[in-house]
Design a protein around this nucleic acid. Structure first.
Lengths: 339, 339
DNA sequence: TTGTAAGCGTTATCAA
DNA sequence: TTGATAACGCTTACAA
């Protein structure tokens, strides 16, 4: 039923080898021959069979993207950056999610990768994750997004610096009682949680400000989590005058908790996030923007380089810049409010 | 370098044919033999070569998802539903985006599909789109999500009804001057834009309310678009007392425009959306929720059925229910405000 | 520059 | 229930 390379060869009056070479744009093909082959292929409406090509060549022409979430802002935004790059290179994008390590319902990603893809992109999986370890052990060209691990290429921001910048912004506004809504209990270095916590602590320490653990709460990087975390913080005897949220989505939740208490972000308590979420501008949230789409794009580009170079290159980790965007959710501390 | 089926056959003392049958769980294999084969495969850490299998069998074991957007709430949420179903079935998910018909930078999806996937899922592409037509012409098992076309299976909501329900809610609250923020100029039937416009008109007409075209504006399904649309509406001499937004994201933008004018949703102007966006609860937006994740899941399930049945089934279009969720953004019209 | 032909690793047909 | 073996459609030495 399908047109094969033999049909094209016959139509063009050449061998299948020549058709193969001509259609892939290899060098050693006479211009006239190539033109003839291309015309024949077009006339026959020939499409190469990827399976046959993959089997013969050993290359799959596809890359897997492994992510813990699809429908969350950060992840889908990274994914869109990845997709545009891969599509431009004519590489197939295989999308796979990984479940929490405990949920055994889903298949582990590593076995599904073998013999199936030329490379792997991993979005924001914790470095100590067992499934991630298995993926890396496959020794495929890999690059990580949002976290970094020794000897594996990665694209990240400087999370310590981002958190420090956010916290410093609050300090510069005169705030001294500063709360923290963290993602999850910080575990390993080079995760967003850990590094952002570190940046927060660094900034506070440098400014000789006390860190009050009763003003720290976990929001699990979701808005409902952020809402609960803020609610807990607001229940403290002495409320903070400002709160650093490790993500914008948690800050959105925090905003809602404030509203429930009749408080207004910026006026009553300053709120700052990290991300540059689409909704931040709408909600007038001050935030430290990270170039999320670019992170995906650049990681994909780096992976393509790995795929196309004969030799395995040294793993370089690319760190992209962040920037503070000030909006109405942060404001100077009214004079005397702290003393 | 790779372990092949021959190695397993040798280790198990059977033929490659038997290994193939045993490992795929086919019926005619002795239990003992199968066990022996499975052990051999496990010991050798054998992984089947998908390319070889595909070439020999003609099945690719993969499905393409075609979408105009990745990083937008509706699309990424559908995608996550699709993904979980396909992953559960062991089917590879190939993700491709389509650009606007005019942008010729990217490859058209149809050629990339041929010989590459067993089926296609298309998320919310306009029925009259040329690229969609080409995809359908491939005659692969296909199912559409969010729009419907004759003779192609689809999963949608009843957009007319959803819009009617939203509008009726406003009418029930006593509103009479009701504005509309539409997605884009409604073109073909069975698009969200067209049908939601129809539902709006139906409800208004039934209630004998006038439709004032100066209170209609386009928001292009984005929040910034919604903001501009609402700004335009607020510039009218006689403002509406309520506005129906065809999507939650546009309603978010409308909320912002209201805030800029010192207006509060629900108190000054009632606002209702369609979607059930993650942020709607946070922003207290009344909305008509559609089961977006389920739409993806169910479309994928329907596609799997198509793939596994010998015969091409009649195309059935599945319509999922929506539900009105009332929040603070809509409120009864104060007495006398309209008269 | 082009052609010949041997794989690539499965599946599927047909016999046994 | 199992085994031989011919596809499947392409790539790639190697030869010409």
């Amino acid at each position: 039923m399908g047109i094969t390379i033999r049909d094209v060869a016959q139509a063009a009056g050449v061998s299948t080898a020549t058709v193969s070479r001509a259609l892939r744009g290899l060098a050693n093909v006479d211009a006239t021959t190539r033109a003839r082959v291309e015309r024949a292929a077009a006339e026959l409406d020939y499409v190469i069979s990827p399976s046959a090509s993959r089997l013969a060549s050993g290359r799959t022409g596809s890359v897997a993207v492994i992510t813990p979430h699809i429908a969350r802002w950060f992840f889908s935004t990274v994914l869109s950056g990845v997709e545009s790059t891969l599509q431009g290179a004519g590489i197939d994008l295989l999308l796979m999610t990984v479940s929490a390590p405990d949920a055994q319902h889903r298949l582990a990603p590593a076995p599904r990768l073998r013999r199936r893809v030329d490379g792997v992109l991993v979005i924001a999986m914790p470095p100590e994750d067992q499934q991630l370890a298995e993926v890396i052990k496959l020794d495929l060209p890999t690059s990580l997004i949002g976290v970094s691990i020794d000897d594996v290429p990665s694209v990240t921001i400087d999370d310590v610096y981002a958190a420090r910048m956010a916290t410093q912004h609050l300090i510069n506004l005169g705030h001294q009682r500063i709360g923290l809504i963290a993602g999850s209990a910080s575990r390993a270095r080079f995760t967003a949680e850990f590094d952002r916590h570190r940046g927060f602590v660094d900034a506070m320490t440098e400014a000789n400000l006390p860190i009050d653990s009763s003003l720290e709460s976990l929001g699990y990087f979701t808005s409902t989590g952020g809402e609960q975390a803020m609610t807990a913080i607001l229940a403290q005897r002495e409320r903070p005058t400002a709160v650093f949220c490790m993500s914008d989505e948690m800050a959105f939740g925090a905003m809602r908790a404030m509203r429930s208490h009749g408080l207004q972000p910026g006026r009553d308590i300053s709120l700052i996030g990290v991300d540059g979420h689409d909704m931040s501008e709408l909600l007038e949230l001050t935030t430290v923007e990270q170039p999320v789409h670019d992170m995906g794009r650049i990681a994909a580009e780096a992976l393509l380089v790995q795929l196309n170079s004969e030799f395995r290159m040294h793993a370089d980790s690319i760190v992209l810049p962040t920037r503070l965007v000030v909006r109405a959710s942060t404001a100077p501390l009214p004079r005397g409010a702290n003393s």
